[in-house]
Design a protein around this nucleic acid. Structure first.
Lengths: 199, 199, 199, 199
DNA sequence: AATGAATGAGGCTTCATTCAT
DNA sequence: CATGAATGAAGCCTCATTCAT
């Protein structure tokens, strides 16, 4: 499965526009970024975006859709479904944290700029967000069920693990953490602790 | 100690403007919020803000300053300095999480809209943010030092605990968590787990 | 009865804007006239129109509404209701033609630029237009009924008389007709002929 | 004599473009119609117009030129030159009114959208317009000269007859008049009345 | 302190048109 | 010929801010 072409154009110019917009939106916010700024990063005219996206909001939607879709795919691909919950949690959280760090600009847009979407577009994205949480919840639940996790509250722990991963894009790089791999090593251990797994 | 009057006006109208701006900025982002929108929430004219704040950015600064100052004060007040690190951590994280939930609109502004500040104002706020992290780090360090916490990496665990608290304002209210008190009960336990404290 | 204040603002600036817009729209058409052009005629900034009219279309609507309302009032005031149909027709057509000539710029906007109105605004204007035709039709009908007019087709003759008057704004001033009064003398006689009145 | 090929291309694609443009310009005005809209009516790309017309204005000119030329030809062909003025007037006005009704979309463009032409193009069209008026004036003058018309003012009556015919395209179809033939029956009689012809 | 009007700057978008394919 | 992408210019409108009242 891959990103839906009907929403996220595969054309080269469209992809470059998304990349430029991600940098700009992440740095200044969607509302404070002008279409000119995005185009200027590619040395294109201000109008060059419009054959590819009908509006600035559609550009944001394409970014948000692709971002969520990719996250979902990556987490699904990283999840060793048949194995022990602790191993699954480590794998998924490592992947999640690493990607939030690696793609922190995109992630910031994807996490914090959704208020500018139309209601309809927002609903589409909200659906993908729920899928991500569900994926993590299933693992936490599996550990709770087989007794390998000591979880007082599946919902709360799931929320916390996802929250921890999501927030990486806000602060990364920061403090002594400047490499995605360092984050990818720390976070699985943190998640295991939150889950109360027998070490 | 209280919020610095020279930055955050104590006048009633100024306070109402901050409150209205917090709601608007939280909902739509600073860049996408107009001064008219803020004024309209108070049924004032767009020009009525200017006797109180020199600019929209000054209004944001006042909000950010007050928000950080209050958080810092509350955490300091909640920290039972002489007691065991685990108890201190519980107390501080409980307070932090509860306040991020209770004041999630203000917290969102304070956490995510700082890019619009002038460099000078940003530096002031960044200083306050460092104070908050330092407060948590001292507790984690104390626990690491006296052996009551099993912390592989003081910096990383501090980062994670703060990150977890900060991110509350992004998702709260959400899932089954709709009361600040419920969050205030869960989060101290999560922090204790992250710190690897002997229960 | 006078022009409805809730649609056509009585403020001085609003009236000056309508006057400037009439000249510009008449000369170049609504679609080809820019808001800057209108403002420039008053040596105002391009944005100065917006406290008075929410959009260019609202400005057009105010002009169209006022124009139709005034025409209707003038014709009603000019109609000597109790007298002979021929005298009424002369009076009304003289007034109509004179006003279309005197205010030919406004009339052009009012007659030819309505396609740019929103559907709702168009319906309001269409109602006023029907009232004007009805006023003329009643006179023609009265003459047909009392035998003072020889009208083969009340509807057709009404249409023709109104058509003749309306079209004045298209060509006036033109040929040897450069004074509204000259038109005001010719047109009643033409209408009488169209109505087949006993001279 | 036929329409000048050097101005109005006879190619099929060019003719379809004119037809599509007439509908669009008539509905929304030249200024408010985009080249894309015209092309879209033919399911062509926006650029497809340019091999046929150098610009939007040239397309308008071709339409206006062809429209006026055809009107002139039709009126000339309809005029039974040697016969009585009354018969000539009836024939010419019947043809004129019928054509304004039949081709009311084209006529609207031709009558009301000329302001967008370049000065040079406008002069060409204005020449054709004068020819049309001259054709009618000659008939009115002939009737005045031989005493068969009772015309107080040749210029005024000519103006009125042409005005009546021109304006058909503004209101047709309307009221109970929905067929060109009905108009073609009414209008000669109206013209005869305006001319004060002995019936 | 508060307002309505005004403004200069600029934002998003559209447009007529060109160009490489 | 026809097209999709690109562009410079411009259009409508909004915005933060000022000013006279």
């Amino acid at each position: 499965m891959s990103v839906d072409e009907s929403v996220v154009s595969g054309s080269k110019a469209a992809a470059r526009l998304r990349a430029a917009a991600i940098e700009a939106f992440a740095a200044n916010g969607f509302g404070a970024t002008t279409t000119r700024e995005v185009a200027a990063r590619l040395e294109m005219s201000a109008a060059a975006m419009y054959p590819h996206y009908k509006s600035k909001e559609e550009l944001l939607f394409a970014i948000a859709y692709e971002g969520h879709q990719l996250t979902l795919e990556w987490l699904q691909a990283a999840d060793p479904v048949g194995e022990a919950p602790a191993d699954r949690l480590r794998a998924v959280v490592g992947e999640f944290a690493k990607n939030q760090a690696t793609h922190h600009a995109r992630a910031r847009v994807v996490e914090y700029e959704l208020a500018a979407l139309t209601d309809e577009h927002f609903r589409v994205i909200a659906g993908l967000r729920r899928d991500v949480v569900r994926l993590v919840r299933r693992i936490v639940q599996a550990g709770a069920d087989d007794g390998s996790f000591a979880v007082p509250d599946v919902e709360g722990v799931t929320l916390a693990i996802v929250s921890l991963c999501v927030d990486v894009c806000r602060w990364f790089p920061g403090g002594t953490y400047t490499e995605p791999d360092t984050v990818a090593k720390l976070y699985p251990e943190l998640a295991i602790r939150l889950a109360g797994a027998h070490s």
